[in-house]
Amino acid sequence: MAPSSPPSPSSQTDFESLGLLPVLCQTARTLGMKRPTPIQQEGIPALLQGRDVLLPSQTGTGKTAAFVLPALQKLAHIKEKEGTEDFSTPRILILEPTRDLAMQTAGICRQLGRQLSVRTRVICGGVPRAQQTRALAEGADIIVATHGRLLELVDNGELILSELIYLVLDEADRLLDEEFSESMTALVPYMADRPQTVFCSATLPEPVMALARKVTHDPVRILLPEESVTPRRLRQRALFIEEHEKEKTLLTFFTQSLPQGRSILFVKTKHRADALARLLRRKGFNALALHGGQTPGERKQALARFQSDTQNILVTTDIAARGLDIEDIQLVINVDLPPKPDTYVHRIGRTARAGRSGRALSFISVTERGLLREIERHINHRIRIVTHDTLQR
């Protein structure tokens, strides 16, 4: 596995220098992407050369565009070579761990590919199967999917993967459960011999590397400059507190000093998310809930309202910890600590994105102190403990 060298500040400062088509460069700039990010500077040329690539998944790095832009260019070249505008079977497959991430990634594919004749279809649970099969019958160039519904359609012959040239496993460290492993094993015989593969993961422990070795060949591993586990401009604090005092303390905190921007509150369960959002609304705060118990339409509406600033507090489960593109988060509060340190890193990564500053506050009950120690070992950083009197600082 060949690691890339982090780009120097003076290297490759525009999209044209990466080898992208002018139409893709122009679209990127139209969407506000003035210059390629470090991960794009290193990842896009390697992918255009046909290499398998391991991309880090830190938030705010431009990772999705780093694998979507080369995919679009490859499609454009193949269509020109074959003299066709439409494919009856997909050439690009992007696997996502959740339907929300699948919908978001598909949206980015459509935005970046809007000047090209590219059809992107989403295949995931929670959507009527007949609706998806009708779309597939009209043809598809890019499939963005979750593995369960994808395998179901492939098994029934309603989706053909034999022409794939490009495979993306996004958020791969979330795709290690037994069900996914079984799905991948079942899907491999249906795919092309060996499509070019992009493997995206925030962490690369041995189980993740074992999967990477299984699906990639001699990959280039992209290293970000000054890569660290947590954002550099993120101020982390923790408050030791009794479990039954968490809601009261939270209300006092917001009453005394409501952050000017958006805040995300992470809790353990969807029921707790609903209850806490209702409590905040009763006390006069703009708050809403987001969790896996909602329909895709309800979650889409909640995110739209949150991002429009009509609601400035989002109470959510770990469904919002990774991947979802939520801009300008000023504060993350872990009302409940997650069971795994990696999830803590993803949660607080919602703020301090792309060089901005941000705050992360965690409420630590007696039973969660062991989790705090695990998190500190994982991030190699001691989180400052504050008191109720210094909570606002």
Rank of each mutant, 00 (worst) to 15 (best):
E171M: 08
L175P: 01
V208C: 09
D155S: 14
A135H: 08
E163S: 15
R174D: 11
T146E: 07
A210L: 12
S183N: 12
A140S: 14
V220W: 09
E138Y: 13
P207D: 09
D141C: 10
L161V: 08
M184H: 00
I222W: 06
D141Y: 03
Y166K: 06
V168S: 03
G157A: 03
A145T: 06
A145L: 08
R232E: 14
T185H: 13
S183M: 12
V220C: 06
D141K: 06
L239F: 04
A212Y: 07
L161G: 04
R232H: 14
D218P: 05
L167N: 01
H147W: 00
T133W: 07
N156C: 06
H217Q: 12
L223M: 09
P189M: 08
I143D: 00
A202L: 10
I143N: 00
S162M: 05
A135G: 01
I142Q: 06
I160Y: 08
L169Y: 09
I241P: 02
V188Y: 07
A172E: 06
Q236T: 07
H217R: 15
G157C: 03
A140V: 15
L151N: 05
E226W: 02
L151I: 04
V229I: 15
P231Q: 10
Q236H: 13
L159W: 06
L159R: 04
L175I: 07
C200Y: 09
V220H: 06
F180V: 08
K214A: 13
E242P: 00
L150M: 12
